[in-house]
């Protein structure tokens, strides 16, 4: 599923955190809970920054800017890591892609 979507992910893409997911920040990292499946996921510090941005409906371009602002990381590498993480989140149904032009 995510493999099909990944090529379409761009800086303008917006994602929405799934309504059944709750998060807790713990020591700069985060734990996600899927209420429907009763499963938990750990996010590292970078993942926690990404999740916080997604909760605020930021575009992937804005998320990427937040990542490069928070961490000393090459912009290209940050984008690749971001896309990989988003793919994992989509695979697990923790986020959904907003239709183009949906949120502003």
């Amino acid at each position: 599923m995510s493999a099909d979507l990944i090529p379409t992910l761009g800086p303008q893409t917006r994602l929405k955190t799934a309504p059944q997911v709750r998060s807790r920040e713990i020591g700069g990292e985060a734990v996600l809970l899927d209420l429907e499946a009763g499963t938990y996921f750990g996010l590292n510090a970078a993942g926690a920054v990404v999740w916080k941005c997604l909760e605020r409906s930021k575009s992937l371009g804005e998320v990427h800017a937040a990542l490069t602002g928070h961490f000393e990381v090459d912009a290209e590498r940050a984008w690749a890591d971001l896309v990989e993480l988003i793919g994992n989140l989509l695979d697990r149904g923790l986020v959904t892609v907003e239709p183009a032009g949906g949120a502003s």
């Binding site: 807790r24 713990i26 020591g27 990292e29 985060a30 734990v31 009763g38 938990y40 750990g42 996010l43």
Partner: peptide, 20 residues
């Protein structure tokens, strides 16, 4: 373990949590 991984340990080993 980090607090995050510690939390995951506590979550995973709680009895009856599947019923919550």
């Amino acid at each position: 373990l980090s607090p995050r991984d510690g939390a995951l340990v506590l979550l995973a080993h709680t009895v009856a949590a599947r019923l919550f």
